[in-house]
Design a protein around this nucleic acid. Structure first.
Lengths: 232, 232
DNA sequence: ATTCATAGTGTAATTGATACACTTTTTTGA
DNA sequence: TCAAAAAAGTGTATCAATTACACTATGAAT
C-alpha cells in the first residue's frame, strides 16, 4: 500500500438535535472536537485525552495555539438551544484552551460512541456550519500551523516513516495553498541534512518509482540547538 | 527631551510576607502582573484592565501567547504559604491566560496602591526570584515576542512617534540580544516603505543630529494585505 | 513496442545577505 | 577659535539564496 498525502483534513463532530415531538431537525451542524478538563488534569493531558478518545492514538504531536473565553461565545440561539438540550447551564462561562494536532489518517478509525465524526478537507469547511466560535478557532489553528511549519519540520507528523519528495512537496503545497517548482523545492530539501535518502524505492507503481526518504529526528534536534546556540 | 531606547524591561510586582509575630520576612520575591478575569469580561479586556491599573494607559498593543493550567503550578511551599496568607484556597485550580504588551516607559508612572512595582531589565531577572511558574511564562513571552518581531514591526510600540534609525536598531539588538551592522541594518529599513523619513532632525544633542523617522501604519497595513493576497 | 505517468536533474539571472572603514556634523571645552 | 569627542551617515565587492525554466529516465500497462 502506498498512500500519498492528498488533503489537509480536520476532524469534525456532528451536532444533531431533533424535536422529540415534531421530529423536526432543530440543529444539524458540526463542532471541533473537545471536552472539559478534569480537575487535577494538565491542559495538554486533556487535549491528548480528547484525541485518544477519538483516534486511539498516543504520543501525538500537539500544540497549544490559542485560548478563547469571550463571555458571549456560546450565545448564538442555536448554541443556547444545544446547551439546554444537553443539560448544561447555557449562561455558564466557558474558556477553551485550543490545541492542534497533526495526525496521519492512514490506519486510523475515528470512533465516538454516540456521535458521527468526520474528516473534512479544511478548504471545504463552511464557516456557518461550525458551532459556537469554532470557525474562528479553526482559522487561528491554520494560521498557527502555517507559521509553525515555516520554521519547524512538523510536517513529518503527517507523513509515513518513509516518504517520497513528491509527497513532502504536496504536503507543503496543501498547507500553504500554493505550488512550488519541483527543482527548487528539492534544492531546499537537499540542504536539510536531517532528511535522509534511503536505498529503498517505491514498488508496484505504474511509473518511474520514487526514492524514499526519512526524517532523522536526532540530526534535526542537533542542528536546531546549534542554531539556538550561535545565530540567535 | 530625547529619550532613546535602552533596555527591554518587564514590570514585576513585589510579593512580601512578614511573620506578624517574629517580624521575620517569610516571603520576598517577585511576580508578573496579573489578576482574575471578571465574570462577563473578555479575556483581552481583563489583560487590558491589569495593564491600565498598573500604568494608566489605554489602547496598548497586547498579544495573547500562552495559557498555563498545570494543576500543581502553585504547589511550591512558598506559593502555598502566600495563597493562605491572602485567604485563597491553596488547592484551587488556577488557569492563567498570558499576554504580553509593549509599552514605552517614557511618561509612565507605575502605580499599585499596596504593592511595590518595578521595571526590571529582562536579562537581570533571576528565575528563582519569580513566584509560581512565572519564570516559565516570562521565557515563553520572550520567545513569542521575538517570533512576532521577526514578522511584524510591532517594535514601533516601544518607540516614540518620531525615532532615529539608531534607536530602532538598538531596539532590535536588545530584543534579539545581538548586534547588527549599521549599514546593513539601514539597507533593510530602506526597503520598508512604511518607515518614513521626516524633515526634522534631533536638536540639542552634542554630536551630529540624527534624522527622525516615523512609522506609517496605513502603508504597513496596505502592504501587509498585499502579501496576504498574493504571495501566501 | 508504444504510451502513460511520474521521477529526477542543471544552469543562468536576479536578488538578498554579509563584511567592512571612512567622512560628516554638531557640541563641548581647552 | 580650534581641537576633540560623539554619533550620524554612506558604498562596494563577495557570496549565498532564490527564481525561472525543459528535458530525460524509468517502469507498468496496453
Amino acid at each position: 500500500m502506498d498512500l500519498t498525502f492528498r488533503d489537509l483534513n480536520v476532524i469534525l463532530v456532528q451536532r444533531e438535535l431533533t424535536d422529540p415531538i415534531s421530529g423536526e431537525k432543530l440543529i444539524n451542524d458540526l463542532t471541533l472536537a473537545g471536552n472539559h478538563v478534569y480537575m487535577d488534569e494538565q491542559l495538554d493531558a486533556a487535549a491528548r485525552r480528547v484525541l485518544f478518545d477519538l483516534t486511539g492514538l498516543h504520543d501525538i504531536f500537539l500544540e497549544q495555539f490559542y485560548t478563547t473565553g469571550d463571555p458571549d461565545r456560546l450565545s448564538k440561539p442555536m448554541d443556547q438551544l444545544w446547551l439546554k438540550s444537553i443539560n448544561k447551564n447555557p449562561s455558564e462561562r466557558v474558556v477553551s484552551v485550543c490545541y492542534y494536532s497533526l495526525i496521519n489518517s492512514i490506519n486510523i478509525t475515528i470512533t465516538k460512541k454516540d456521535r458521527v465524526v468526520l474528516w473534512v478537507p479544511v478548504q471545504d469547511v463552511k464557516n456557518q456550519e461550525l458551532a459556537f466560535d469554532h470557525a474562528k478557532i479553526l482559522e487561528n489553528a491554520l494560521l498557527a500551523l502555517r507559521n509553525k511549519l515555516k520554521h519547524e519540520p512538523i510536517s513529518f507528523e503527517l507523513l509515513p516513516e518513509k516518504f517520497t519528495l513528491s509527497q513532502l512537496q504536496r504536503l507543503y503545497e496543501v498547507v500553504f495553498n500554493t505550488e512550488y517548482d519541483k527543482r527548487n523545492f528539492r534544492k531546499k530539501i537537499n540542504k536539510m541534512n536531517y532528511i535522509i535518502k534511503l536505498e529503498e524505492k517505491q514498488v508496484g507503481v505504474s511509473h518511474k518509482p520514487a526514492t524514499y526518504f526519512s526524517f532523522d529526528r536526532n540530526i534535526y534536534e542537533a542542528c536546531k540547538s546549534e542554531i539556538l546556540n550561535f545565530s540567535s
